[in-house]
């Protein structure tokens, strides 16, 4: 018989940083339509991949996290996008975590929904149903196993019907990102050319600062990370108020998460 089975895969992209870690900031704007760059971000997620260990992680920030916005005083983390676009959001997260961010990707309601519609349903189990007719419009039955565009948007928006409110929603957004990764891997596994469908959806329905060539490499790289090797952590917060505003304060325990993420590129 032939030698031992050979299975594996690697990406050797020239743009990869020497220490093998790539960080991308995912921003979900609350803009229903129009320009999402000057709206508030209801989703702020820092995703990382370690290209040596092929493991990754996602840090999820609740939108009401009260933080220092560089050059713009204090405010909720979601205001950074409104005040200075994705670049300021990147600088804000960099200043909080001490992690240098390589790329950002921004989407809004319409783009998010359309991207999922174009790529196909996302496999994600929703054990408890979500019904929020007045808010996100969610009407997801219990034990739903895959989400279409409309349900996906509702899933990542819903907070009122969740016990933990916005913090639970933030965690759900992290879950959704991992489900997307799982879908990407399944799609590429069935047909590698599907990578270009994903790239097309990304270019069409999101704003991003990733050149096509690097997007391809990053996409290939991401598709080689197993979803079970990606940890999703929502920063620990405490509910409080800043003036009249109800906000959450990131707890000191978050620092160890940032440090671990910065060091390993994974969680």
């Amino acid at each position: 018989m032939a030698g031992a089975p050979v299975t594996g895969g690697r990406v050797h992209a020239d743009h990869q940083p020497k220490d093998g870690k790539i960080f991308v900031l995912f921003l979900g704007s609350d803009a229903r339509s129009g320009n999402p760059t000057h709206s508030r971000a209801d989703g702020v997620h820092l995703a990382g991949i370690n290209t040596k260990t092929m493991k990754g992680g996602i840090i999820n920030f609740p939108r009401d996290s009260w933080v220092n916005i560089p050059g713009s005083g204090s405010g909720r983390i979601n205001e950074a996008l409104y005040r200075g676009g994705p670049e300021l959001a990147v600088r804000t997260v960099e200043s909080i975590t001490g992690i240098q961010i390589d790329y950002w990707l921004l989407t809004a309601f319409e783009g998010f929904q359309s991207a999922v519609r174009d790529l196909g349903n996302v496999p994600l189990e929703v054990k408890q149903g979500m019904h929020d007719p007045g808010g996100s419009g969610a009407d997801i039955e219990p034990r739903t196993k895959s989400l279409n565009g409309v349900d996906s948007l509702a899933f990542v928006r819903t907070r009122k019907s969740l016990p933990g409110g916005d913090v639970s929603r933030t965690s759900n957004q992290g879950r959704f990102l991992i489900a997307l990764l799982r879908k990407l891997r399944t799609d590429i596994g069935r047909s590698p050319g599907r990578m270009f469908d994903w790239m097309t959806a990304a270019r069409k329905w999101t704003r991003l600062d990733i050149p096509p060539h690097e997007l391809f490499q990053l996409g290939v790289l991401t598709s080689q990370v197993r979803s079970q090797d990606v940890g999703s952590v929502t920063v620990p917060v405490r509910v409080g108020s800043a003036g009249a505003a109800s906000v959450v304060f990131i707890q000191p325990g978050a620092q160890s998460i940032y440090d671990r993420f910065k060091k390993n590129g994974s969680l």
Binding site: A2, V6, T7, D14, P192, V220, L221
Partner: peptide, 14 residues
């Protein structure tokens, strides 16, 4: 080629 995935295994007993 900058990246690859490979899967090679014995086909069957010859």
């Amino acid at each position: 080629v900058f990246g690859y995935e490979v899967d090679q295994k014995p086909f069957k007993k010859q």
